[in-house]
């Protein structure tokens, strides 16, 4: 399905990013694994991907840092030759009630979760414009659509990602670059493990399919959007949330 395609997945040493990197590789894509801190975990993902018979390497970069991002993209294009798929997945949370949230906590989450998407997208666009082809998939969140108490910074960033997706989709459509977002709901990962029991219970009660999603559920949707099967789709945000927000 993605044989011969070259992909970069940000924040793919663990969680949803890892599942996306593995899924793209499973479909035949070469995958660059970006990480910020977890080098050992990134290396493990690289080895897992290489065992599938495709190329992979890890690349350290803070997505909120422009020069890091430029270097990373240059390295990926240098190693793979093209840049066919970018998955902007890297993200962090710094949850707190608005009244208690420090401006630095707000900035940090916006910088990584939103500005990071902008920087990575900008960095790959040159190559994709030349190729006259490209798939960019941004990992937003269902709370970016619905809002969530205690996550003003995260929600603002994730809602921003949806807007950024639409603008980028419109700007780049004429160059055959497709830009879409996925909005995962309650997915079982390290990040959701940190939520309180009350938060979890209240979310489960709102899910029509009455269960958590898996990172693989998200990865399979991303794989679809990254493939030629999704060639008439751009600027969309696909909810992967068991029907939680319709």
């Amino acid at each position: 399905m993605l044989k011969g395609k070259n992909a970069l997945v940000t924040g793919s040493s663990r969680g949803i990013g890892r599942a996306i990197a593995l899924e793209l590789a499973k479909q035949g894509a070469n995958v660059a694994v970006n990480y910020a801190g977890s080098e050992d975990k990134a290396q493990a993902v690289v080895e897992e991907i290489e065992n599938m018979g495709v190329k992979s390497f890890k690349v350290k970069a803070n997505v909120a840092d422009e020069s890091d991002v430029k270097k990373m993209v240059k390295e990926v294009i240098g190693q793979f030759g093209t840049m066919d798929i970018l998955v902007n997945n890297a993200g962090v949370t710094k949850d707190n009630l608005l009244m208690r949230m420090k401006p630095e906590e707000f900035d940090q989450v916006i910088n990584i979760n939103l500005k990071g998407v902008f920087l990575c997208t900008k960095a790959v666009t040159r190559q994709m414009m030349k190729q006259k082809a490209g798939k960019i998939i941004n990992v937003s969140s269902i709370v970016g659509v619905s809002g969530n108490p205690g996550q003003a910074n995260y929600v603002a960033a994730k809602a921003g990602v949806i807007g950024l997706t639409k603008s980028t989709a419109k700007e780049l459509a004429s160059r055959n670059i497709h830009v879409n977002a996925v909005a995962p709901g309650f997915i079982s990962t390290d990040m959701t493990d940190e939520l309180t029991k009350e938060q979890k219970e209240s979310m489960l009660s709102m899910i029509p399919l009455a269960k958590l999603g898996s990172a693989e559920d998200v990865a399979k949707t991303v794989r679809f959007l990254a493939s030629d099967d999704a060639n008439y789709i751009t600027g969309q945000t696909i909810h992967i949330d068991g029907g939680m927000v319709m």
Binding site: R126, M129, K130, E171, L172, S174, R175
Partner: peptide, 9 residues
């Protein structure tokens, strides 16, 4: 605008 960006590239 995008043509000009591309041209500059």
């Amino acid at each position: 605008s995008l043509d000009v960006v591309e041209l500059v590239m």
